[in-house]
Every structure is written in structure tokens, then in C-alpha cells.
Design a binder for these strands. Structure first.
Lengths: 323, 323
DNA sequence: CTGTTAGCGCCTTCAG
DNA sequence: CTGAAGGCGCTAACAG
């Protein structure tokens, strides 16, 4: 009874109750254990009755596997990463794994520390690390299974999105509306994502037609501050490196009396909910929860290779034909 | 060497290297272990040199403590909870603890499952559970240390915010500006937070002057949809149960041609960043990361009692004197 | 199919 | 202050 209330029932208690050996209980409770159906039934029954709960520390110690994953994100306040955390954690739980999350506060140091701290306690890492350089990342992660998200790193499996294609969708949409001069607001140069998105634009737009703005560092403020420069270029449409930057843009444009989409079409990138709340923003949706689920699967599956997920333009109210 | 690269160095390896016993190594590496300074120094040195890393499964098994915390949040996409996760996790890491996060998807079932799944693997829980009823919560958590956040539950320590006082600040601000008729948009009846905020309003405003709207369920849509009713009341100012609802309100008011703050003052609650981005919203700031840090401290500290954190009105551009 | 036997790596008495 | 011994709860051979 006290064992029951304290959750301290062990397989030995279950075994004793049934008059069988602990190993049989262990096997019966393990998915790949070989026991008779009858035995399994009785064990499961007794386990439930006695309030048995697996002690994973003991299991970890003897198997070396922890059934836990580490998730590294630069900042949970960023909804992009919050959704990744949600997805990863849901998927992991469904597969019987727990997830340790480490918010690395945008610091490569902290990232390293977190990996060091958790590496023996997890079966692998899902890593969101847009900033730190490849070498450092590979070095920190050496010896532990890991998959990186929304980034490609030589030597590590990754889950990414078809950013280039997403950019093409955005530009095709604007061109179809009749826009000839389409600007781009680039994101931080150090970020893999920002780089790829920019490359998508550069690959899609003939060099002479390119109108490049930024790079911005602070997302909203950056967009806000680059809006005046945008107006000076004579562009009739703009694609921003992400949604928050697009919102900054829209905000300043409104202050300047420029109507969106009438006077300026604006497209964001990511497809965050927050960007559709007050200002229904046309945006290229980049999978987040789904990508995280894939990352977890990749980590837990034997043959691990990279995955590229599709992106999708979502047209809302910030784009229209030029007037 | 192979031990080193695989991270499989044990205290025995360190002990052997130094020609001492494993217990001495264990003591030297433990904060409260009693060894000579000289020994400790040598052990620390050898441990570092050999790449020793504590196997927490082994430690857990022998001590029963895991140095891990479970964090239950209803939805990480909600920035309120994302910030809590960030704060909890940062604080825990600083104190040498890891955190398992479980996003319970707003489901009491999932909450229960998560607790069952993690209860033997953590030293305690930090619980954000605005919805599920007290009994269920207490029952699920019985036998494990736990502190609840932004909610009070009989029999559990909690970290809450001075909501009533925050509401008073908001109302005082509006009254000082000259508003006489101040409406309130209530949140979901089932939520502890929504209930407390509403009570704050009810306690602060004489019954005959109260203008109660809602309750809303969907935050943004709810605010959006209640805006017309608000206009019909003749109120010149409104306090919304949270920021997102306030944004919904503002959005619909704009569509109706009602200028904020000129024609209607709006105050939100929570003080989320997202609410200051495009629409600088006057709001009552409710601590999130800080509250989470307190919750972690409470859990890790021996004498655990409840804490109430202050709230603070932050005046921005959505409030003004009535015109 | 089931029982016996050894640990997994660490901490914690108990002696010395 | 340090060493030896035992056990935390579970799994994994190895026999039967």
C-alpha cells in the first residue's frame, strides 16, 4: 500500500505478487519481450493493480538509452520556435519519449553548455541553431545523434523547407498581379534561413531588376526602419524576409500614409498566426510543428537522412494589383 | 581514449587514474562530499582531463532524485506560456536542473497522461493549468512536489500575480483621464485567471456603473465580435481580459471607424510584446518569466509557500481622455 | 517460454 | 579523511 501511494512499486513486487520472476515481468512489460500472452496479461493486470510505474533511471542505466530527446531553440518567445517546441514535444510524447528543452538565449555559449549538460541524458538532439557556425555545431554534437532544423549542416541530417520554391511562389504571385518592380528586405546575414531566402529572391529576379534592402537585424524595428528606403526605390511590392519584418514595414507604411495593398503590396515569410491577427498578411508558410515532428522521427528512426518540406504561399489581404 | 570520445568515462576510470577509490571520487565531485582540498583538486583535474561526465541515470537510481523538473503548459503557441517555459527552463538550468516540458494541448486528459508519464522522472512539477478542476489536479499531482502558476489551488503552493491590484491600476488610470463609463470584456468562465480579473473589475466598479461584456472564448475573435456590443453600451473606455482580446477589439473598432484612443480607450491585460508591436496597447503587465523563475525556486527550496508577484500598468497609446 | 545471474554507474553506510 | 561493500531497479545474456 505504501509502495503504491509512493509510486515505489518495482518489478520485484509485481513478480512476487504473481509468484514469478522479475525478468519475466520485465519482458512482459517490454514491447519486444517474449512471453506467453497469458503471462503478459496477468503481469499487466498485476502491474496496474499494484500501481507499478517504470523507473526509467534504472532502465537507462542498464540499457544506455534514455527515451528522452534534447531540443535546442534560440528563443522560445519567438513563436516560430515555440511552435517547433510544441510539435517536437507532442510527437516525442506520442512515441514514448520525453523532451528536455533548452532555450539557449541566442547564445552560442549557452548552446554549448546545454549540449554538454544534457548529452548523456538524451538519446539525441533536435537542434535549432540559426546562428552558430557549422564547425562549432558539429564539434559540440559529435558523438550524439542529432538532427538540425531549418538549416543545413555538412555531416548532419536536417529538416528544412523549400524556401527557394516558396520565394518563387511569392514572386510569381506578385508578377501575376502585374508588379514589375519587387523589392526584398533581407534578414540577418549570419542566419542560414535569411541567407537562403535571400538567395531565392536573387535567383528568381533578374539582377537588373533586383531591389535589395536591409539586411535588418531586429525584426520588427528593422522592417519599420527600412520602410522609407523602400518607398524611395519606386518598388510597388516587397517581400520581407519574415512576417515580423513585414509587420514592421506595414506599420511604418501606414504612418507614412501608404495604403497596403493599394499603394504597396507586402508579402511576409513564415506564415505566423500573429501576422494574420490584426493585419491579414499574405505570406509564405513555412512548416514548423510538422518540421519538428519530422525531426523527431528522423532522430528515432534508424536510417536517418535529410528531409525537405514544402512551403506554401497563402494569399491574404496585403497584396493586390498595383494601382 | 575510446572512453573519452564516447563520453563513457566513469568515476572508476578517474579513480584508477589517480590510484584512489571510486567513493573518494564520488565525494570529491559532490558539493557536500567531505574530502581534502588537495584530493578534490586532483580529482577535478583528472575528471576534466579524462572527459568524465556524470551519468545522471546512475545517480538518480541511487539517490532517487532526478535533478529534473516537469513543466506542464496548455499551449506553447500562446506567448504567455512560451515565456513561462523560457523562464522556467533558464532558471532550472542555472540551478543544475533540466526541464521536461509537456504541452498538454489544452486537454485535461493529456495533462493527466503527461503527469503519469513523467512523475517518476522528475523532482517535481511546475503546473500551468488554467482549466482543469482543482480536485483532478490535486489528485493527479498527489505524491509529487508541485507548484501551480497563475492559479490558486487549495493544498498546493502557487505563484500568482496581483491581478486585483492590476485591475485597480487600469481603472484608476481611466478614471483619472476622466472616463466615467468603463466596460469590461470578460474571459472564459472556466479559467481561474479570467475569473480573478473579472472579480477585480467587479470589486473596483460600483455595481450600477458596471458594463459587463462577454465572456469571450476565442481570444482575438471574441474581442473582435464583442466590439459592436461595446459601442452600443455608450462606454468611453474598456478593459479587456487579455491583450489578444484587446487587439481583437481594436481591430473591429477600426473597421467601424472608431478611433483608438480618441473615441475609445482600450486597456489590455498581460503586457505581451505582440500587443505592442503594431498597436501600442496600454496594458497591465503580468509577470511571466519571473513568475516561472519563482515557481522553480519554490519547487527546489525546502520551505515552500505561495508567492504573489506585483502587476504593473504600462501606459501606451491606446488610452486617452474621452473626447 | 521462464528463471538465474550479472552488472549498468553512482551514492552511502560502515569501518578504518 | 579515505576505502570497501552493497544496493538503487531494470535489462540482458545464459541456461534450462
Amino acid at each position: 500500500m505504501s509502495a503504491r501511494t509512493t509510486g515505489r512499486t518495482t518489478i520485484h513486487d509485481v513478480a512476487a505478487d504473481l509468484g514469478i520472476s522479475a525478468s519475466t515481468v520485465s519482458r512482459a512489460l517490454s514491447p519486444q519481450g517474449v512471453v506467453s500472452d497469458e503471462t503478459r496479461r496477468r503481469v499487466e493486470d498485476a502491474a496496474a493493480r499494484l500501481g507499478y510505474r517504470l523507473n526509467s533511471a534504472a532502465r537507462n542505466l542498464s540499457t544506455g538509452r534514455t527515451h528522452a530527446l534534447g531540443l535546442l531553440v534560440p528563443d522560445l518567445r519567438n513563436p516560430f520556435f515555440a511552435e517547433i517546441a510544441k510539435g517536437a514535444q507532442n510527437r516525442a510524447r506520442a512515441r514514448g519519449h520525453a523532451v528536455y528543452v533548452a532555450d539557449t538565449n541566442l547564445s552560442a555559449e549557452t548552446e554549448l553548455e546545454a549540449v554538454e549538460m544534457m548529452r548523456r541524458d538524451v538519446d539525441g538532439f533536435v537542434v535549432c541553431s540559426p546562428w552558430s557556425d557549422d564547425e562549432r555545431l558539429v564539434a559540440a554534437l559529435s558523438g550524439v545523434p542529432a538532427v538540425v532544423m531549418h538549416r543545413e549542416v555538412e555531416g548532419l541530417p536536417s529538416v528544412t523547407a523549400a524556401l527557394h520554391d516558396g520565394m518563387r511562389q511569392a514572386l510569381d504571385h506578385l508578377r501575376a498581379l502585374g508588379h514589375a518592380r519587387i523589392a526584398y528586405v533581407a534578414g540577418p546575414a549570419g542566419s542560414w534561413n535569411a541567407r537562403e531566402r535571400r538567395r531565392g529572391y536573387e535567383a528568381e529576379v533578374p539582377e537588373v531588376e533586383q531591389v535589395m534592402l536591409g539586411p535588418v537585424v531586429d525584426q520588427f524595428e528593422g522592417g519599420f526602419s527600412v520602410a522609407d528606403a523602400l518607398l524611395a526605390t519606386g518598388a510597388t511590392a516587397v517581400v520581407a524576409y519574415n512576417d515580423i519584418t513585414a509587420l514592421g514595414l506595414v506599420s511604418r507604411l501606414a504612418a507614412r500614409g501608404v495604403r497596403v495593398p493599394k499603394d504597396m503590396s507586402v508579402i511576409g515569410f513564415d506564415g505566423l498566426d500573429v501576422a494574420t491577427l490584426a493585419n491579414p498578411l499574405t505570406s509564405v508558410s513555412v512548416p514548423r510543428a510538422l518540421a519538428a515532428e519530422h525531426a523527431v522521427d528522423l532522430l528515432l528512426r534508424p536510417g536517418t537522412s535529410s528531409v525537405v518540406l514544402p512551403t506554401q504561399l497563402v494569399v491574404r489581404e496585403s497584396t493586390a494589383a498595383p494601382s
